[in-house]
């Protein structure tokens, strides 16, 4: 986890800490984002992703730590720094009783876009998010996907150096989700620096150049997907499903050579195993001896879910 900041980093976060009462929501988080880089914050709900983003956007003051935003050492405290930031919140932060154009014009004025430039820029963004033909409709008449696109459009309006997307696909239908992911892909291809938070590992794997895994407020690992997968020791994931003494079987399996982690989820056991095929027969025998009747076996190559399990001892979806 490098606190070392590249000289041209769009965003550098060092030792960011925030507590609400006795609960420490963010605990010493550090990372940086280079120009044109897509950086993902991956973690379960409640891991501290949104609080981290709220601090970066200036909504929540950190208890400790430093944020350098687009060269501004005071981070989001200065209006100049915030003007370089685009924020797409998890919620649809648009007025339903205004049209798409009116919503964009409002935020354009708040961003200080000159009046003459604003009209053409609003038109560009409406085209970009595919809402040009519905620009005069109230947004409460939009579908969920259209609202999501407008929500992103507001963040892009002032052509920021860094776009922050906070779980933009939560509660979105599959079709709209694909559209959003394609839009994010396109923005990354254009060279825009992105900070993308999600608890969907497949989104992080697909979109992000580097990923920071957060859990319980701490950044537990940072790297490219390949770098993170190596953390697990290139172990495989083995899922055993069945009935009987599942807990006892998991405990016994966890003691086997080559098994580095074992967790129980209902009637299933998830194991992290180096070279799973070589140990599969032994594992099935141990499960049977422990009183578990195995009905289904699934062996898969490690992914970010396994990395998270390896690092935290818990599944990402927990």
């Amino acid at each position: 986890m490098g606190a070392e900041q590249p000289p041209d980093a769009v965003l550098s976060v060092e030792g960011l800490t925030k507590s609400f009462g006795d609960r420490r929501a963010v605990d010493g988080v550090s990372f940086e984002i280079a120009p044109g880089e897509t950086f993902g914050l991956l973690g379960p709900n409640g891991a501290g992703k949104t609080t981290t983003i709220s601090m970066i956007c200036g909504l929540v003051p950190p208890d400790a730590g430093r944020i350098t935003l687009c060269g501004h050492a005071d981070g989001p405290a200065t209006p100049q720094a915030r003007s370089r930031l685009g924020y797409v919140p998890q919620d649809l932060a648009i007025y339903p009783d205004l049209t798409a154009r009116e919503n964009l014009q409002l935020f354009g004025r708040l961003q200080g876009i000159p009046r003459r430039a604003l009209t053409s820029r609003v038109d560009e963004v409406l085209e970009m998010v595919g809402l040009a033909d519905r620009a005069r409709d109230l947004t409460k008449e939009y579908s969920g996907g259209m609202k999501r696109r407008l929500n992103i459009g507001v963040g892009l309006l002032h052509q920021p150096d860094l776009l922050i997307l906070d779980e933009p696909t939560v509660g979105v239908d599959p079709q709209s989700r694909n559209a959003i992911l394609e839009a994010v892909d396109a923005l990354a291809a254009e060279g825009l620096a992105l900070l993308y938070t999600t608890h969907y590992m497949e989104e992080a794997e697909r979109l992000c150049d580097r990923i920071g895994i957060v859990d319980q407020g701490r950044m537990v690992a940072v790297g490219t997907v390949d770098e993170l997968l190596r953390i697990t020791g290139e172990a495989d994931a083995v899922a055993l499903s069945g009935s009987g003494a599942v807990g006892a079987a998991a405990a016994a399996l966890g003691e086997l050579d080559g098994v580095s982690a074992a967790s129980v989820d209902g009637t299933s056991i998830t194991l992290t195993v180096v070279d799973a095929p070589a140990h599969l027969a032994t594992m099935l025998a141990v499960a049977a001896e422990s009183g578990m009747s195995v009905t289904d076996v699934d062996v898969s190559r490690p992914d970010l879910e396994d990395v998270f399990l390896h690092l935290t001892g818990r599944a990402l979806r927990d």
Binding site: C57, G58, L59, P76, P79, P89, D91, Y95, F107
Partner: peptide
Amino acid sequence: QSRELRVTQRELTTPIS
């Protein structure tokens, strides 16, 4: 209503105070 819609929060991420 604006706070519930999170528009207020979003406005505060712009250069305004």
